[in-house]
Design a protein around this nucleic acid. Sequence first.
DNA 1: TAAAAAAACGAGCGCTCGCTCTATTTTATG
DNA 2: CATAAAATAGAGCGAGCGCTCGTTTTTTTA
Lengths: 239, 239
Amino acid sequence: MKAVLAGRGDFSTEGLCRSILERHRDMIRVQKPHVAVAKLARIVETILKLSNRQGFHATSLREISAESGVSMGGLYSYFDSKDTLLLMILGEVSAATTSVLEGAPGDVAADPARHLRWLIAAHVALTEAMLPWFVFAFLEAKSFPPAGRRAAVESEEATEAIFRGAIERGARQGCYAVEDPAFAAGLIKPLLQDWYVKRAKWRRRGITADEYAARVQAFVERALGADPAGPAKGGTAAR
Amino acid sequence: MKAVLAGRGDFSTEGLCRSILERHRDMIRVQKPHVAVAKLARIVETILKLSNRQGFHATSLREISAESGVSMGGLYSYFDSKDTLLLMILGEVSAATTSVLEGAPGDVAADPARHLRWLIAAHVALTEAMLPWFVFAFLEAKSFPPAGRRAAVESEEATEAIFRGAIERGARQGCYAVEDPAFAAGLIKPLLQDWYVKRAKWRRRGITADEYAARVQAFVERALGADPAGPAKGGTAAR
DNA sequence: TAAAAAAACGAGCGCTCGCTCTATTTTATG
DNA sequence: CATAAAATAGAGCGAGCGCTCGTTTTTTTA
């Protein structure tokens, strides 16, 4: 499963928090990086856990403090308001998404059909690797500060544009028989979001990430009117 | 657009609040129905407006009171806690969904392909008629009381089962070439949810409800491998 | 129109929230 | 080991929360 993402970044909590630290060095008052990263990781892990259970707004800083073992005052060495904490996490999610989806290997990107299949597999793999982050972003982005809303919308448009690009090139080359690539791209996003938003449903049915990616690939290709003769070799592009 | 829903219920705020009143007669302390319905409508309208902008949790009862013109004490003649208010709205959404989707005309339900097209058109039309209700349910159902969570999951499963039924019958009759009807049904739901969840996006692109329904019908039928010769007459089933 | 019933009101209660600030402990330095 | 600097602690602040309840206003009834 992880194969698609191999060597494309560190998606562990620590790795992602290192990136958060870099991005917010000026605000975070703790100097030593290894201390800051370790503590940030405990804070972020806690808030993802509690928020995904009961909502960000319903999660108090006192709860986060108690669960993470970082004092109230200590928390405020890492952010200047609860909203900032939210934006830190949202920013990391959208940065990771863009950086991964824009990084298809050259030979893959050269073939639109392969590219689209790769994008689907990479998206599923990424949301799998950063599951709680994506769930959090999805649940909280809409009901919060204007900055967060705008960022979320832009990030989603960027993702969709990448999908649209592949479909448009495929249509031009004749491997898809689709009248409106933009519309089709708009429908792919929700299909990929369902994997992490309704995770419980798919797990209950015993669907793995690889299976999900493969089936969505097949579903989308048929809907796009893919040349049945075209994608002869290997569907998944993942494992 | 409304044609699919014609005569299938009253989806105005007042009509829906009449139904809420019936369902919660024992808790609502105001006796005269026309007074209660009118005031409930103002309360519900206000909470949908404010919650869809800033989230239910972030909307205080004082705000609701000020915006709706109903005093704090007055509000509590209609519910016994803020959570109950949430559940009242969620309940109404899932009741309307089930009742509409289970009510396909006999001749439509007899033909699986027509039935599936009708289900898609009816779902889009219903979410259009009850837009703020569905947005509210989608945004708030997950991060709230266990009762609400369970109800939301069950309601969604019921909807999906109706779609699955049509696909399975279609597959058995040979008008779809699909290997796993349950999986396909699971993918249709998010496509339909995107219409109201990402409403701004589709509006920006100038897509109307009718167009959306028609295109999703086409997208899904191709993905299901619909017999190209089969659905010769009229695609939309709506207008 | 006077008495009774129903509905509406809104200040106030106890509590928890996000956030601050000083005192204390821990770590690094010479 | 003494001293300076960095990091942590957690009680306390004012604001705002959900909710209650005695009072006032409106409506119905006779």
